[in-house]
Every structure is written in C-alpha cells, then in structure tokens.
Amino acid sequence: MSKGGQSRTRLLLVILIVTSLFLVTLDLRGVKLLDSLKQGMQNVVSPFQRTANSALSPVKGFFSDISLLGRSGSQIEKLEKENAALKLELLERQDADVQIDQLKNILDLAGTAGYKIVNAKVISQGSYQSFAQTVTIGSGSNAGIAQNMTVLSEYGIAGIVKEVYPNSALIQLASDPAFRIGVRIVNSQQIGFLTGRGERSAVLQLLDNSTDINEGDILMSRGSIANRPFVPGVPVGYITTVDNSAGTIAQSATVRYYTDFSKLSVLAVVVGGPSTNPGDALVPQKPRPIPTPTVTVFVTPTPTPSN
C-alpha cells in the first residue's frame, strides 16, 4: 500500500473510532438520538421473527430426529417420509399442548392473585453476545403493554418489560445480570434484594444481618409503587445455599428461580395490579410424594405332568 493510501486508511479509521466514541458518549449522556431508528429496525424485524417463530416452532427439537433419516430404499424412504410428517404433526400438537398447559398455569396464577394480564407468545430468544438474558414477545403497546410491567411465567416471576414496540416487546428475564428485584422471605418476612447472574440461580442479599435464613425458604416479590415494575406476591424462587462466611456486612444466599428460562413459550404481562396485596396466596405447594402402588401376584403351583 502506498504512503498516501496508508494515511488515508489511518484517517478513515480515526474518523470511524471517533464516531463510535461519539455515539457511546451521546447514549451515556441520555441523548436518545438513535432510539427511533432502533424502534424502526425492530418494527422491520418483528414480522420476520413472527413468521420464523410460526415456521420453526415444531422444528426446534426436530433436528436430532431428522438426522436419523436418510437410509436407501424407496419403501423405507416413503415410510420415513410419512413417519417424519406424522412426527412433525405430533410435534406441532405437543408444542400446542405445552403452550396450552403453560397458559392454563399462568391464568391460574394470575387469577388467584387478581392480576389483570395480557398473554403473549415468545417470538424470539435473546442473543448471547451481550451476555444479556432477554426474549421478545409478540404483543406490544397495541395490546396495552407498557415499559416496566411485571412479566409472569407459569411458575412465577419471569422478568420485566424493558422496551415496547407496537406489536412486540423486549422482556428482560429475571436471570439477566442487570436484573434486580425486591423480595421478602415467606415465613420470616425478612426483606432483601435479588440479583440475576445470567443463569437460573440468583444472589439474595438481605438488608438485615441478624435474621436466620434457611435452605428451602421461599421468596416472593415485594411489589413497587403503583405496581411497577413489580406487583406484590409473585413467587420468585427458593433458597438453595446460605452464605455463612464470617465478616460479611449483609447476609447473602443463592436462590433458584421457579421459572425455567430455557423453556419459555408463553408469558403473561401484568397490565393491572391487584386491588389488595395477595400476600402469601401464591406460595407454591410443596410437592406431595406419590404413593407407589404395590402389585401382589398370587401364584398357585400346578403339578408338572409326568409322562
């Protein structure tokens, strides 16, 4: 490359770096110059996401099955094609059944507490690059969804509405490292706050160091002013390990969320909070052991016929 060419490349690089830093500075100073562009882009992408979600919904777990096909022979091929079509149909049915189950549980949860909800399908998972935990749902401001509303799964808290577009919304999952929620422990009424860690477990920090916390203690959301971002009384998770290290200022513990963030297909956004605090009405029931049936077989011995 010539000397002139080199200096031109350097100049271009410097201009682009300065532009990037300028954009970062503008964003950090709260100048939302490119927010409308971001919203426009989401409006463009959202129909593609919706279409891809409908098209790929039964195929998501189908790759392992489809890889088994491919043996020769027309009869086998024909049967396999039929089999694959039936499997696809079955998967579609199973997918619908799972969504119906999740929806039913969400409605039960919201109905018990008196939350007014809007249900929505998950149309896209978040990307990994930013180490953020997000999903996109297929309903937005047109359905009454607004920023900072609580989002429920069938088991409890799923996250909050981070961004809203006319026909979609971005949900920050409770597992996101930037997620914070005020919680109380069901039995002791001890309060603290929970921080996401990018996985299904989270870190609980209590505000008072004097109370004992135990493994298995259940956490519920405390609620916010005007029920935003959090409505009160939503099951959050349970304590799995208590950190008893000496010299800590605040007592901390590891919490496992009730919600399995890898299996979200239907979510509910709480658009209207309860008129009264539901208290512990939504505390999950402890699983009851199912009795194992004992089968007794009576055998009557018969004499072996002798020749």
């Binding site: 970062v24 964003d27 950090l28 990307s127 690059q129 930013s130 997000t134 996109t136």
Partner: peptide, 13 residues
Amino acid sequence: LSQNTSGPFGQWT
C-alpha cells in the same frame, strides 16, 4: 440496533 443489546449505543460499533 438490535434490541437484545444491553450496552450503550456505539459499544458494538
């Protein structure tokens, strides 16, 4: 421009 990005605008750029 992706809505899944968590950092400030310009960081990925």
